[in-house]
Design a protein around this nucleic acid. Structure first.
Length: 398
DNA sequence: GTCAATTCACATGAAAGAGACCACGGTCTAGTG
DNA sequence: CTAGACCGTGGTCTCTTTCATGTGAATTGACGA
């Protein structure tokens, strides 16, 4: 056995990898040249340029679906600006979707302060005092702060527009410096819930990032593949397929890159030195499977119990189920395992969270005399379903 | 048959509580010179 | 004398409960043709 393992490892070492440098397929990687976004880049550059001369630029609102390069372009422009002139100019990029950084007003502020090299405790201080610190810090010298808030919709949905409102208000009190806001979002509808004052000040300038089409995705993939993969390991057909799949899903470049990367990984694991279209198909399934399984496994306990209840009902040939059905199974499950039973109100919320995550799909229906409730359907494929069912059974079945 | 009232089984909202975490400042304690 | 341990207070955060209100169509029952 040991012999075998040693053989395997030494073979592995000797075998040529398909990858030249995996990093280039990572979607956080910022390439030196960004394809098919020239118009957007020059527009944003024009809007933000005054900040180089320490004059306040207009606020900017960037809109586009996922994987259209919004974040990438923003980071790219920030980098360029900072290397042109970082005197009196400060850029902060915050991704509002990362839990750690920012799902409360306090954390947003603390993250901003950290970016300005003024770390504050993660909790324990009054929010008000963070505002004061921020204010002091910004106004201590003459400067322009460019604050990019990525996935702004996520923040607004969680904590409302109070922070934005305060930031715009702070601006008028600042003597030496100014803050310019750059909102980035893939969902434009959330602006309706904003305070009109915030809304109008945020969208002084607006720009839309259109989805990439299949040809553009192909260009992008080719360029990245050139740096990251061995030349003889990939073919036009493989790239085309990745591009085509991603183009169907709203032209999501991130998805295209993931597909190519995972295809290459699969090919490598199968000890082949060429990626084929079959690998791409595999990769597509694997990505989906991983996403779903990972998502479900990392849910908190009662969410898991809720999912498991739904899985169990589904196993009993019940295509559609109601909140009450699920709750009943859930209660039994809790009793059997000795967990505290949450109220139906709470489970109702958990169910709609699961809906948002895409594990189930729900619809509120009225059944007339027989009440109004949510109709719940499972929204995952057979394979992840099997995996999850076994996983949860091990966990929650005696 | 028609029409409005009723009724069901939850959805949806708002508020507030519990328990965890943490910073800060003051007090106590033990080790040091 | 001082560094570090140990409180108490006051703050946030997340998860949850409690209470209240809303909702849409099947059902019911009164009514008139």
């Amino acid at each position: 056995m040991q012999e075998k393992l040693r053989n395997y490892f030494s073979q592995y070492m000797n075998r040529d990898s398909i990858f030249r440098d995996k990093n280039y397929l990572n979607h956080n990687h910022i390439p030196t040249e960004i394809l098919h976004r020239d118009d957007q880049i020059s527009y944003i550059a024009k809007v933000l340029a005054p900040s180089l001369k320490v004059q306040q630029p207009s606020n900017l609102f960037v809109y586009g679906t996922t994987g259209t390069g919004k974040s990438l372009v923003m980071k790219y422009i920030f980098n360029e600006m900072m290397s042109t002139n970082n005197n009196g100019l400060n850029t902060i990029y915050i991704n509002c979707k990362l839990r750690k950084t920012s799902d409360t007003e306090y954390r947003m502020l603390s993250y901003m302060l950290k970016e300005l090299n003024f770390p504050v405790p993660e909790t324990g201080l009054p929010t008000e005092s963070l505002y004061n610190k921020l204010f002091e810090l910004i106004d201590s010298k003459q400067q322009i702060i460019l604050l990019a808030l990525d996935e702004l919709d996520a923040m607004i949905n969680k904590i409302g527009d109070g922070l934005l409102y305060n930031l715009t208000r702070i601006n008028s009190d600042l003597k030496n410096s100014k803050i310019s806001l750059i909102g980035i979002s893939n969902d434009i509808s959330f602006t309706e819930s904003l305070d009109p004052r915030v809304k109008s000040s945020l969208s002084e300038e607006e720009i839309i990032f259109p989805p990439y089409n299949a040809l553009q995705l192909k260009d992008i993939l080719f360029k990245r593949a050139k740096n990251s993969l061995k030349q003889e390991s990939y073919s036009e057909a493989v790239i085309s397929k990745c591009a085509a799949i991603a183009a169907q899903e709203q032209g999501d470049a991130r998805r295209a890159l993931d597909l190519l990367r995972v295809s290459a990984e699969i090919a490598e694991r199968e000890e082949e030195d060429k990626i084929t279209e079959k690998h791409v198909t595999h990769a597509e399934q694997k990505l989906e499977l991983d996403r779903v399984v990972e998502l479900a496994k990392t849910q908190p306990r009662h969410s898991q119990l809720t999912i498991y209840s739904i899985l169990k009902l589904f196993a009993k040939d019940q295509e559609k189920m109601l909140t009450g059905d699920v709750y009943e199974v859930y209660v039994n499950l809790c009793k059997k395992n000795g967990y505290r039973i949450l109220t139906q109100r709470r489970i109702s919320d958990l169910i709609s969270e699961l809906d948002m995550l895409g594990l189930i799909s729900t619809k509120v229906v009225s059944k007339g005399r027989y009440g109004r409730t949510r109709e719940i359907k499972l929204a995952i494929a057979k394979k992840p379903y099997d995996i999850l069912k076994n996983y949860f059974a091990d966990l929650y079945e005696l």
